[in-house]
Structure formats: structure tokens, C-alpha cells
Amino acid sequence: MTIPSTASLGFLPRSDGSASFSQGRTSVIASVNGPMEVRIRDELPQEAYIEVIVRPAIGVTGTREKYLESRLLSALKPIILRSNHPRTLIQIVVQVVQSAGSEDNAITTLLLLAPSLNAAVLALLDAGVPLKSVLSATTVAFLKGSGKLIVEPELEDLKKAASKHVLAFTSAGLLGFVESEGEFEYEDFERVVEAGRNVCSAGREGDDNDTKMDTGGQGVGELMRKVVREKVEKDLRWRA
């Protein structure tokens, strides 16, 4: 029994952009502020300085959060058109609302990555920060023995998995971010990437209704696309 992923946009009135994303039992909120004034120390003459802050559900920021921050930054930095806003700061705050397990281990940290990334991208869209492309991320587990793939696995699936992968793709299907752990061959990895790409890519313009029916359920890419479309429709109601 899997819990369907959900996302929502623009519910924090005081930040420039906000979004929430939940996948399985993991739930996060992201907010984006910027472009705004930057600390002198961080100012970059030719581009915007991007800051990612991860706040844990319980307790204070530790090395685990620092690690998540650096991974999120590495995924988000290349998709933001930083040169559009030189000498400014774009701040992305990710607040963990609920994590899949209470243990502070590698698997729960891994499960936080994809939802955080999705929430951050949605919040950037909501804030109107210029982006090169839209990333969507998912988690894939590769099971021992059978070689079965589970997309968006639960904590229990991951415990039994031979390898765990967090992948992010642009809407055009380019691989933007990888975090894979476990023991696997390169051929397995290729299969995992293919499975991830299917879930993450949001059908291109024009083939909205026909071709993507064969994927069955709703992929992350399409969910994100749907949420943004609904938001835009709602915001532009006055023009109708």
C-alpha cells in the first residue's frame, strides 16, 4: 500500500515562494526568498549567491543537515539563472516536517533528498526565480536477488534493497543529480536511471494527453507540472 505523493504551492504569505512536497511518509516544506540583499562576505560580482538551509524536524542542525544542504545546493545551483541577478542572495529554506523513520541513519537521510529537491524546485517556481530547467527527483530501490526495481520505495523496501538511488532529471530528461549507494553493477545502474527517467520526465508540450497514459500512475514530473498549472490557472482567473 503506497501513499500517493502530494504537492502544494504558495501557501506561505510572507515568503516570495513556498511549496510543500510529501512522498510516502516523508514530508517537507520549502520556502524561497530572493533576490535580496546579500551579506558582503558572500557577495558575488557576476552572479547571485544561492544559499540552502535545511532545518531538521527535531533538534538542531548537525552535520547531516550540512550534508543535505550541500547536496541540494549542487542540484539546484546549475538550474538557476544566477547571472540574471548579480550581487544578490537567493535563499532556499527546507523545513523537514516529517521523516520516514526516527532513526538518524543513512536511509532516512536518503529518503529526505528527493522530496526536499522537489519542494525546493516548486518553491523556486512559485517565487518566480528564473530557471534554466525544472528538475524533478525520485528515489529508486534495487532489490537483492530478483533485480526488481521499486520506484518511490518505503523505508522497509530500502532496508531490503541491494542499492538505493536518488535521481533527478530535467523535464527534457537530462540527468541532473545522482546519489546512489549500495553494491551494484553499471548495467543495473542504467536500468535504474531509465526507470527514474520515466517517472520524472513530464511529457513535453504538445503530447499532454496522449502519450503519457501508458505510464499508468502519476509520475513526479507530471505531479509537479499539474500543481504548477493549477496554480497558474488560479492566479490568472481574472483574465478569463
Binding site: S74, P78, L175, V178, S180, E183
Partner: peptide, 29 residues
């Protein structure tokens, strides 16, 4: 853009990390 690959004894892959850009696709990995 950066990529990190961790290899175990016997040539198995133990970890792949990639981030910071879109230039390196599957052939690059």
C-alpha cells in the same frame, strides 16, 4: 559539475554522486 564514484573490491560500484550540472550524461558516468 562534479562526479564521485566509489568502487569496491571486485569492481562493484558502491556509490555514485553527481551534481552541479547537466553536462555529464550516462556516457560520461
Amino acid at each position: 559539475e562534479s562526479v564521485m564514484v566509489c568502487i569496491k573490491e571486485g569492481g562493484k560500484i558502491a556509490r555514485i554522486e553527481k551534481g552541479g550540472g547537466l553536462a555529464c550524461g550516462m556516457e560520461g558516468l
